[in-house]
Design a binder for these strands. Structure first.
Length: 881
RNA sequence: GCGGGGAUGCCGGAGUGGUCAAACGGGACAGGCUUAGGACCUGUUAGCUUAGUGCUUACGUGGGUUCAAAUCCUACUCCCCGCACCA
């Protein structure tokens, strides 16, 4: 028996030696860039869940290659990050050692999956050759004012001992530790000003061939809303103006209904306004109280709202009314201006708050049917309506008033039309060692001084102590530096960058991975970009997939790349489950590729992963199912290895071209499961027949090639072709050869045969001993004719079938049945489908072979001919009259 | 609450107006092969029946459109996944 493992190893070696998957920019082929999100090289290695992800991309890369594209299909490693650092701390070792060991293990595993990567372009983000250019990009951002340091409230994970970006906070918890709620801390941190790109990030979503849900998620995350900024004079008890405060609202039409204003706890004005007053301590206590609560507690919808009066007032310029200024936990400092103009009559949150603290409720919009009574309202009225109590705007429709009142406010200098985004600037500082150092020197005199480009990379020091705080701070050689600007003593920035910075441009580096002088050669990058197909998980929807779009736009603006969007098409693969839950090391339900390939060969594993479910769906790993895939592979191998003979007939050509057509269609749309079904049906058919033409065999091998590349290479060679099927041309469909009627014949023949077998079973007769009579086209006087026939051939035991014209009606079988009983014959089977002679002939042939019996077709109309055809006693025959 | 996606036979999973009791795979059952098991091959696998190409019931639930619905419309139920006091 063949060893699929030996075959796999043989071809993996040949691929590697011949470098056939290495890509360059020369030649006239059209380029195709196929990419999977590069992995974090976990020391756990990879399991079938990862494998599924890679095989999806690999099949497409192989498919495109065979279709004559110049395919770039690289792999690299997102190798900075916390797990390696933590492992190193535990083992009192260095993260680099862990990381590089993990990488070489990954590569080994990926190679044994038969993935067709161009390994000459591999990169790893922890290497100075790579992160040097992280730093370079940082400096460009810094120059443009898009990298800046500010003090603000940030999310802190106590387990990671570092700050997190907004995108890394999931349900109020750390994205790595879903049991650890993030704390709020006020820290001085580095940010990238992604908000400057909010509008473009939103607009360009339209251009992308990405799954709708991802686009929707990004759009929600960016959270654009149109509205107005309204400015209010803040006054003291006596009515003296002390300040102006800005609020953001999407409902300027309710401006006449403002009855109070709330500030978020973090709002700096809270301290300012209460300083030295009786409210100072109370406000501080209130803030402390609020901050004790977790993010979830504070921000979940429907939570009870708390607040307190701040002792100050403001003037609503629309009405001239003096209203109180409050602090409240439901106001978010992060959103808008951190201050909310409250209109309790028309906003549910404001309504609840006003009810609780007995603040006035003023109706300014009435429903069309009746007038609202603020005393009796049980909830805010948030629908459309007509303005009242709104000065000159009374009686206008609130929808129209939004714009009118905004214009009015602008004219009066009370505010302006504005657009607000939920998207926050990207916090990239991390207080950890195993990341890219931020290339900044902090000088007391000169503040943040960028490291000169020629001095890059700022390398991570070797002599650090892990354990407490940021290890970088423990290296005096790293920290203590001279300020490049003033020459005085200064300290190097010890924060490292979020690893999502590394992954924001790696796909560009693949285009020119070995470049020592620049982050890449723009010509090369422009040749390959954009990524034509990007394969990866949904979980990156509002993280990586926004960041890398931002970086692309920034590098575009620098003139380094032509494209504004990194990836044309995005494909989200489904998760692999086992025992009903996602396969993962921590759950302990992983299946390793090695286990599968040891038992069945890796092609079986690949086939199974692609066959069970469509790639974008979650699927369940099933050990029995794998055996099914294995059975198919063996059948397929056996067919091509031992049963290739002859030339294809018309029917085979028709089937073959249909196959090519359908499989191509399914590959193109990444519906591999459907493609494989077609391939199975085709293979099974010819396996059953017991032979296949060489033409079909060669096409079949090419069509399955991307899925099970190793055995296909082997079979391709066995068929007498030069290596490699991986480089062979994709079969072309010849539509003119497709003949559905011809293909349908097989089905009919099967039916006839099935019918006959069924009768044989019914009458418990051995097919070798029975006379078979099939009698079609009885038109007139069939009863008598049939009777005659029956009289003539006494030796038959069963009438197998009668084929009739459709217009004979339903009663004919009954009549025939009666005739048969009359003649004292065995029960029969009758079928009335309007079979063609050809089909009968095919069925006859098939059965003759199957039962090793001589079966002839006889035209019973002519009894001489019947005799001539051996329709004699004891001899099986099919009689046609 | 808002947004997105689902619900198909014992299981996974195709199917999106007729050719559907529904691809393909798994499982189960029966038969063949075999000393036996495995592997392999053949058949069966909604129910009732038959000489049968017949009847009934079925694609989450209830209504509707149509000569015809798993497929279209509508209401509802349940499941998953995002966002979530966003002013």
């Amino acid at each position: 028996m063949v060893s699929f493992n030996e075959i796999a190893q043989k071809w993996q070696q040949k691929w590697s030696e011949s470098k056939i998957f290495e890509a360059d920019e020369s030649g006239s082929k059209k380029k195709y860039y196929c990419l999977e999100m590069f992995p974090y090289p976990s020391s756990m290695g990879l399991h079938m869940g990862h494998a599924r992800n890679y095989v999806i991309g690999d099949m497409f890369a192989r498919y495109k290659r065979m279709n004559g594209f110049n395919v770039l299909y690289p792999m690299g490693f997102d190798s900075f990050g916390l797990p390696a650092e933590n492992a190193a701390i535990k083992a009192k070792s260095h993260p680099k050692i862990f990381t590089e060991k993990a990488i070489s293990n990954f590569i080994k595993q990926q190679k044994s999956l038969g993935l067709s990567y161009d390994w000459s372009r591999t990169l790893a983000s922890h290497k100075p050759e790579y992160y040097r250019w992280d730093q370079w990009i940082f400096l460009q951002l810094f120059k443009k004012g898009l990298a800046y340091k500010k003090t603000s409230i940030v999310n802190w994970c106590s387990k990671c001992e570092t700050v997190l970006a907004n995108e890394q906070v999931v349900n109020g918890c750390c994205w790595r530790h879903d049991d650890t709620e993030v704390d709020q801390r006020e820290l001085n941190q580095w940010y990238f000003k992604i908000t400057d790109y909010a509008e473009r990030l939103l607009q360009d979503l339209d251009k992308l061939d990405w799954p709708e849900d991802i686009k929707q998620m990004q759009s929600n995350w960016i959270g654009k809303s149109y509205g107005a900024e309204l400015w209010f004079d803040v006054v003291d008890e006596a009515g003296k103006k002390i300040d102006t405060i800005k609020t953001f609202t999407t409902r300027p039409d309710t401006a006449y209904g403002i009855t109070y204003l709330v500030l978020a706890c973090e709002h700096p004005k809270v301290i300012e306004y209460t300083k030295g007053t009786e409210y100072e301590q109370k406000a501080k206590d209130f803030i402390t109280e609020v901050k004790k609560k977790s993010i979830i507690e504070r921000t979940a919808e429907g939570k009870e709202k708390n607040g307190m009066f701040l002792g100050k007032y403001f003037i609503n310029p629309f009405t001239g009314e003096k209203c109180p200024l409050w602090i409240a936990d439901y106001a978010l400092y992060d959103y808008g201006t951190g201050a909310v103009m409250a209109v309790p009559a028309h906003d549910q949150r404001d309504f609840e708050f006003a009810k609780k603290y007995d603040l006035p409720i003023k109706v300014v919009i009435n429903p069309h049917a009746f007038d609202l009574n603020p005393e009796k309202m049980t909830r805010a009225f948030v629908d459309e309506g007509t303005l009242v109590n709104s000065g000159d705007f009374d009686d206008s429709q609130n929808r129209d008033a939004i714009d009118e009142i905004t214009k009015f406010a602008e004219k009066k200098g009370w505010g302006k039309k504005t657009v607000n985004y939920k998207l926050r600037d990207w916090l990239i500082s991390r207080q950890r060692f195993w990341g890219c150092p931020i290339p900044i020197i902090n000088c007391e005199k000169c503040e943040h001084v960028p490291v000169e480009e020629k001095n890059l990379p700022v390398k991570l020091p070797e002599n650090v102590t892990f354990g407490k705080g940021n290890p970088l701070e423990t290296s005096p050689e790293f920290v203590e530096v001279i300020c490049p600007k003033c020459g005085g003593p200064a300290k190097r920035e010890t924060d490292t960058m979020d690893t999502f910075v590394d992954s924001s441009w790696y796909y560009m580096r693949y285009c020119d991975a070995q470049n020592q002088d620049a982050l890449f050669d723009p010509a090369k990058v422009n040749y390959w970009l954009p990524i034509d197909l990007y394969v990866g998980g949904k979980e990156h929807a509002t993280g990586h997939l926004i960041y890398f779009r931002f970086f692309t736009k920034f590098l575009h603006d620098l003139g380094l790349v032509n494209v504004e969007e990194p990836a044309k098409q995005l494909f989200n693969q489904g998760m692999l489950h086992k025992e009903g839950v996602v396969m993962s090391k921590s759950r302990g339900n992983v299946v390793l590729p090695e286990e599968v390939s040891d038992k069945y060969g890796i092609d079986t594993g690949r086939l199974f992963l692609m066959f069970v479910a469509s790639p974008e769906k979650d699927m369940e790993w099933d050990d029995h199912g794998v055996q099914g895939a294995y059975r198919f592979i063996r059948k397929f191998y056996d067919l091509i290895e031992t049963k290739v003979e002859g030339d294809p007939d018309e029917k085979e050509l028709s089937k073959l071209n249909s196959l090519i057509k359908n499989v191509t269609k399914y590959y193109e749309s990444l519906e591999y499961n459907k493609a494989i079904i077609e391939l199975m049906q085709f293979t099974n058919h010819f396996h059953q027949i017991g032979k296949i033409s060489k033409v079909s065999a060669e096409n079949l091998v090419r069509l399955i090639g991307p899925c099970t590349p190793h055995i296909c290479e082997e079979l391709w060679e066995k068929l007498g072709n030069k290596p490699f099927v991986s480089l062979a041309e994709w079969p072309k469909c010849n539509e003119s050869k497709i003949n559905p009627a011809l293909e349908a014949e097989d089905v009919l023949v099967e039916q006839v045969r099935g019918d006959i077998l069924r009768v044989l079973e019914l009458v418990k007769l051995d097919p070798k001993k029975i006379s078979l009579i099939i009698s079609p086209q009885w038109k007139y006087g069939f009863y008598g004719k049939l009777k005659q026939e029956l009289e003539k051939s006494r030796d038959f035991k069963a009438l197998i079938g009668i084929v009739m014209d459709k217009d004979h009606g339903q009663d004919i079988p009954k009549i025939i049945q009666a005739v048969l009983k009359d003649a004292g014959k065995m029960p029969t089977h009758i079928f009335s489908q309007d079979h063609e002679l050809k089909i009968l002939e095919a069925a006859r042939q098939k059965m003759a072979e199957e039962f090793k019996a001589e079966i002839v077709l006889v035209k019973a109309e002519d009894s001489k001919e019947a005799k001539a055809n051996n329709a004699a006693p004891g001899k099986p025959a099919i009689i046609i009259s």
